[in-house]
Amino acid sequence: MQRTPPELTSNARALRFNATDAEHRLWQQLRQIRPRLTRQLVVSHYILDFACRTCKLAIELDGGQHAGSGPDTVRTAYLEDRGWIVLRFWNHDVLENIEGVVETILATVSRASTHPNPSLPGRG
């Protein structure tokens, strides 16, 4: 198994410690989801904002600089070719409609997971 390059590991760690407001808010909602999600996961030569290894679900948050981004299209295609499901949300959507974003993520996790009840605690 190929080891993760040290520079990607350190970049992922730096991104975790310097999360955007949208990433921080979403993580507060996602960190209790089962199966477990993680932040800033290195997959090949990409760092995913959030990911569920069990479901092969990648969750990406995008700011305005990503509008029509060619590299994002290439990244999504790369991940999908390897069996990942990729969800993309605008930062604005996370900040203005966190409930809708979390519901979309939970619905995707429940379709992709063998976990008996993927949900947030207290939501059944």
Score class of each variant (00 low, 15 high):
Val43Ile: 12
Pro121Val: 01
Arg13Pro: 07
Gly124Lys: 05
Trp84Ile: 07
Val43His: 09
Gln40Gly: 12
Gln65Tyr: 06
Ser69Thr: 06
Leu106Gly: 04
Val94Asn: 03
Tyr78Arg: 03
Asp21Met: 03
Val101Lys: 00
Val101Met: 00
Gly64Ile: 07
Gln32Cys: 12
Leu37Pro: 13
Ile85Met: 12
Ala107Asp: 11
Leu120Tyr: 11
Pro121Thr: 05
Gly63Cys: 09
Phe89Ser: 03
Gly70Ser: 13
Gly124His: 14
His45Phe: 13
Gly122Phe: 13
Glu80Trp: 07
Tyr78Glu: 13
Arg123Val: 00
Leu87Arg: 10
Thr38Met: 04
Gly68Leu: 08
Phe17Ser: 12
Arg3Gly: 10
Leu48Thr: 08
Leu106Ser: 05
Thr76Cys: 07
Pro116Tyr: 04
Val43Gln: 05
Gly64Cys: 06
Thr76Gly: 11
Leu79Ser: 10
Thr104Leu: 10
Ile105Gln: 01
Leu15Phe: 09
Gly100Val: 06
Ile98Asn: 01
Leu61Trp: 00
Arg75Thr: 10
His92Thr: 14
Ser113Glu: 10
Val74Gly: 04
Leu120Cys: 04
Cys55Gln: 07
Gln29Phe: 01
Ser10Gly: 00
Glu99Ala: 14
Pro121Gln: 01
Gly70Lys: 10
Ile59Val: 15
Arg31Thr: 03
Ser110Arg: 15
Arg39Met: 05
Glu99Met: 00
Arg3Ile: 08
Pro71Asp: 07
Pro35Val: 10
Cys52Ala: 15
Pro116Ser: 03
Leu26Gln: 11
Arg111Asp: 12
Cys55Thr: 13
His92Met: 09
Arg36Met: 08
Arg13Ser: 06
Ser113Lys: 03
Tyr78Thr: 11
Leu15Met: 14
Pro118His: 09
Glu23Gln: 15
Glu80Met: 14
Thr114His: 09
Glu96Cys: 09
Glu80Arg: 15
Asp72Gly: 10
Arg13Gly: 01
Leu61His: 04
His24Arg: 14
Ala19Lys: 01
Ala77Gly: 02
Glu60Lys: 10
Asp62Gly: 10
Ser110Phe: 00
Arg111Ala: 12
Trp90Glu: 08
Gln29Ala: 15
Asp21Glu: 14
Leu106Ile: 12
Phe50Arg: 00
Arg75Met: 12
Ile59Thr: 05
Ser110Asp: 11
Gly122Ala: 05
Ser44Lys: 12
Gly122Cys: 11
Gly83Lys: 08
Gly124Ile: 02
Ile59Arg: 01
Gln28Phe: 00
Trp90Ile: 02
Leu57Ala: 08
Arg111Val: 11
Asn97Cys: 05
Phe17Leu: 13
Arg3Val: 11
His24Glu: 07
Leu30Pro: 10
Glu80Asp: 04
Asp93Arg: 15
Arg16Ala: 08
Val102Asn: 07
Glu60Val: 09
Gly64Met: 06
Val94Phe: 05
Asp72Glu: 03
Arg123Thr: 07
Ser10Asn: 06
Gln29Glu: 15
Ser10Thr: 14
Leu95Gly: 03
